[in-house]
């Protein structure tokens, strides 16, 4: 029984990590007032860029070095998601396009990019079969050296690849930056009331660009974690599924707080796979349980709008374009 619970917690965390990257990234973006619905697309691109980088490296050398495997694919992933975020920021900030439409187009585009290269990469190199980057995947999956020595506890909480810990560290650091630093204060002010932030001498445009960029890059790591650690270097089209949207749901569930996003992601990750751990569950009930995260999110959304507690609302200017000389 204990080992089942332990393995469930372990699996919940593994499922939760991509969601945590995605939701932390989206929180940082939304705090600047940008509702980036392109996050699911960005996560796809983050994943496939890492795959492409790793593939090219593995195919250009005789013997791979784990650390270089990681560096190459990590850089490729970050560049990919940064470019995606720049498209969003350029269209919504500089060209003042509608955020919803831009975000949805970006998701269409990003999922397309992911599936296209995932499906065609091998053909470009005249190979057949499916993508599988064993060396890179292995490098990512390497657990803390002492994890297995700590028995059940170690196996449950310390057996993950380094990206998993990175996700938690990023969420905690984001929380500290948002709540305890000037940069965070300025960023939150922009999301609440850009005109006030502008009047206080904050460069609204630069903050919005940077937070969208950094948020997107963090979210992209979620895609990278999924393809490198979770599936161990293998790509299957649409394999990432709707996790990007689930990440956006977590943003609401966590009330726009990165620290709460950590636990929320693990809860949502747990709900994603809990059906495997409940004995005797019919396959139809499993689908109902998978519905729970979204249902809970809606309830949270409705409750916060009904209670109208100021601290729990979405950033006030979320989704709106800011233009100074408006009169």
């Amino acid at each position: 029984m204990l080992s089942t619970i332990a393995s469930f917690i372990n699996a919940a965390i593994i499922q939760g990590i991509p969601l945590l990257f995605g939701s932390t990234g989206e929180i940082i973006t939304e705090k600047s007032g940008n509702l980036n619905l392109g996050i699911p697309g960005i996560m796809y691109v983050g994943g496939i860029s890492g795959i492409i980088g790793g593939y090219i490296y593995e195919h250009s050398v005789e013997k791979t070095v784990p650390i270089i495997c990681i560096l190459v694919s990590l850089c490729a992933s970050l560049i990919g998601s940064a470019l995606m975020s720049l498209i969003y920021a350029f269209l919504t900030q500089t060209l003042k396009a509608n955020q919803n439409v831009t975000g949805l187009a970006l998701t269409t585009f990003g999922v397309g990019v992911g599936n296209f290269f995932g499906g065609s990469l091998l053909k470009f190199f005249n190979e057949s079969g499916s993508i599988s980057l064993l060396d890179t995947g292995l490098a990512y999956k390497k657990a803390l050296p002492f994890a297995s020595k700590l028995g059940l506890f170690g196996n449950t909480f310390l057996s993950f690849g380094f990206l998993a810990y990175t996700a938690i560290i990023i969420a905690i650091v984001s929380s500290i930056i948002l709540n305890k630093t000037r940069v965070g204060l300025n960023l939150r002010a922009i999301g609440e009331n850009p005109a006030t932030a502008d009047a206080a001498g904050i460069n609204v445009n630069r903050y919005k660009y940077l937070s969208t960029l950094i948020g997107g890059m963090i979210a992209g790591l979620g895609g990278l974690y999924f393809v490198m650690d979770y599936t161990a270097g293998a790509w299957t089209n649409n394999g990432f599924g709707d996790r990007g949207w689930l990440a956006i749901a977590i943003v609401i569930f966590a009330l726009w707080k990165p620290k709460s996003a950590i636990l929320s992601s693990f809860i949502f990750g747990g709900l994603y796979i809990i059906c495997v751990y409940i004995p005797g569950l019919s396959s139809s009930s499993k689908e109902i349980i998978k519905m729970l995260p979204y249902l809970v999110t809606i309830i949270v959304l409705v409750v916060i709008s009904a209670r109208k507690k100021k601290e729990h609302q979405p950033p006030q200017s979320l989704g709106l374009t800011y233009f100074r000389e408006e009169r």
């Binding site: 002010a189 009331n193 005109a195 932030a197």
Partner: peptide, 8 residues
């Protein structure tokens, strides 16, 4: 018209 952030 005050330029203040309400929740701060």
């Amino acid at each position: 018209h005050f330029k203040l952030v309400d929740i701060f």
